[in-house]
Amino acid sequence: MAINNVNSGLPKTPVDNTKISQQNQTQQSQQQQATSNNASVAQAPRQDSVSLTQSAQQLNQVQKKGSEAPVNQEKVDRLKKAISSGEYKVNPEVLANKIAKLEGEIFGQK
């Protein structure tokens, strides 16, 4: 299949290099402006701030007190050894009673 009379027989319009160079310069200047705007924004100091809720502050205090509490290292080592050797046994009834007692103390029940 042949295509005839593409431009109705008229010669091609010559490329206007002046117009193309002007478009390229416009694009380059826009890119430079965008880059300089981004640089000035990046240089501005940030005004970030953090505020902790009351419960977060209380948790922080509890963690500090917990890390300062004395530790009976001898007992810890003895328990670690018993657990690793499989000799440590949990009495579920005693554990349940202690959990119930602790919950009663926390929630004000006796």
Rank of each mutant, 00 (worst) to 15 (best):
A2K: 14
I3F: 09
N4R: 13
N4E: 15
N4M: 13
N4K: 15
N5S: 09
N5I: 12
N5T: 10
S8Q: 15
G9N: 01
P11V: 09
K12T: 11
T13Q: 13
P14N: 01
P14I: 02
P14Q: 00
P14M: 04
V15F: 07
T18D: 13
T18L: 15
I20D: 07
I20A: 04
S21L: 14
Q22M: 12
Q22E: 11
Q22I: 11
N24S: 11
T26P: 11
Q27I: 15
Q28Y: 12
Q28T: 14
Q30F: 06
Q32R: 13
A34R: 12
T35S: 13
S36C: 11
N37T: 11
Q43P: 02
Q43N: 05
A44S: 03
P45G: 00
P45V: 01
P45A: 02
R46H: 02
Q47S: 04
D48E: 08
D48I: 03
S51V: 08
S55F: 09
Q57L: 08
Q57H: 07
Q58V: 03
Q58P: 00
N60W: 03
V62R: 05
Q63W: 01
Q63P: 01
S67A: 12
E68H: 05
E68D: 10
A69H: 00
Q73C: 05
Q73E: 11
E74H: 08
E74L: 07
V76Y: 02
K81I: 09
K81D: 10
S84N: 13
S84K: 13
Y88K: 12
K89D: 09
K89W: 07
K89G: 10
V90Q: 04
P92N: 07
V94A: 14
L95Q: 08
L95P: 03
A100G: 06
E103F: 00
I106Q: 00
I106S: 00
G108S: 04
